[in-house]
Amino acid sequence: MIWNWQKDDWPEFDYDKAAIEPLERLFLKASGEFVGAFRHVAAADKDLLRIELISDEALKTSEIEGEILNRDSLQSSLRNQFGLGMEDRRVTPKERGIAEMMVDLYEGFDGQLSHETLFSWHRMVMAGERRVQTIGQYRAHEDPMQIVSGPFGRQKVHFEAPPSARVPMEMERYVDWFNRASAVEQASSGPLTRAGIAHLYFESIHPFEDGNGRIGRALSEKALAQGLGQPTLIALAYTIERNRKRYYEMLERASKSNEITHWLVWFAETVLEAQRTTLRRVEFYIAKARFYETFADRLNERQAKVIARMFREGVDGFEGGLSARNYISIAGGSTATTTRDLQHLVEIGALVRTGERRYTRYFLNLSGAS
């Protein structure tokens, strides 16, 4: 197999601008809609929403790599990073490290990229990692850097990166490209194009022993933020994680050619989906605030506990809706008490009821809050 970096035109990526331009316009339009929606979030709630959105990105970019982190601990670390509270002592190095990278990305989005920035991010995402020999530096091992799957002896090679000896030269060229592209992108292409190339280009070099995916996605978000002139808070990793198999398939396909129109279109559509998800979550957060303004003083302790749990499920809510059994498992109490609690929530307009008997389910009535 001849990989993209082995071809004569590397790293001169070719693509059909006409295929991307309509998506670039949609991206800019949706960015304006997000800014407008975010303005409607109460000032006191903006930091809380920012923590929620960034923590979800940190969780999902880690989950893509098979690493499961604790949401509460991660949010505790983020609050500390933003100066909003003291960090929980139970926060692990991995949770603290990814939180540090996300905050550095958010606060320093407009800064030029440097090798030291990348080394610093690598130290953050590799915090607590003992299996990796070289942390905070580009890889230097002689073995091929391959992405493989399957049992030993019958492994399939999905990609092989340039040998370690070439990495310093490749990354010198990458950093120079990233910073030059930032200066000219508005005239030559657009944020989506630059972010898509930034991710693919970085992953094709695969400069670190581990952590390349998390850093590569952070570089995409940095490129998007620079294109807009502000942090995006976009749910990129959240969206990629929901279709992780397709993400890896598209990266593998794009690594075989430097004609990357198909990759850029897919990446752009993924970013647009991520924007829609982020906008939905902001609107959900606004609706949540209105819900509590309307109903908070009308909920007993059990009801308040269940409602808080339902909101914690996010925009999608409980799969299939809340059942009486769910209610009991969250709040405790008898079947009769649960029936009265649920009936009261429906009567005041906090919940909407669907179905009958054992198929009865309850959903938050966000449109009923004034």
Rank of each mutant, 00 (worst) to 15 (best):
T117S: 05
E87R: 12
T278A: 04
D341L: 11
N80Q: 14
F38L: 12
Q112V: 00
D14S: 14
Y285N: 01
P231R: 02
R96M: 08
F295D: 05
G36W: 07
I68D: 05
T239E: 13
Y238T: 15
F109A: 01
K29V: 12
P151I: 00
R173I: 04
I260Q: 03
I197E: 05
Q343E: 15
Q75N: 10
L105E: 06
A18T: 14
A369Q: 12
R358A: 09
L69T: 06
V346I: 13
G83C: 04
R246W: 02
V157R: 04
T294S: 11
G314N: 11
D104W: 04
T134L: 09
I286G: 04
G227H: 11
E185F: 10
M124H: 14
A324K: 15
G213E: 06
T232V: 07
R353I: 06
R166I: 00
L78T: 08
V265C: 02
A268M: 01
K288A: 10
Q81S: 08
A296V: 02
G190Q: 10
N4M: 07
Y292K: 03
R302C: 02
T277S: 03
E33M: 09
K245M: 00
R312K: 14
L23Y: 15
T335A: 13
F38I: 04
Y359G: 12
M145W: 13
M250N: 06
L224W: 12
S220T: 09
N212Y: 12
T338D: 08
Y106Q: 03
S76E: 10
P231N: 07
A296L: 11
T117W: 05
W177G: 08
A19G: 01
G317C: 08
A225T: 04
A296Y: 13
M101P: 13
D176F: 09
D88M: 03
S120G: 03
H344A: 12
W121Q: 06
A37V: 03
D110W: 06
L272E: 10
I20G: 07
E209A: 02
S370Y: 09
S120F: 09
V103K: 10
A350P: 11
P168M: 06
L118R: 06
P207A: 00
S188H: 06
T277A: 03
M310V: 10
A195V: 11
R357S: 05
M169P: 00
A161H: 09
L78E: 11
S204M: 10
Q137C: 02
G332T: 10
D56P: 00
A181R: 13
R276I: 07
R180I: 03
R214S: 06
T360L: 00
H158W: 13
D45T: 00
L74N: 05
R123G: 12
L78G: 07
Q275E: 15
Y238S: 13
N4L: 03
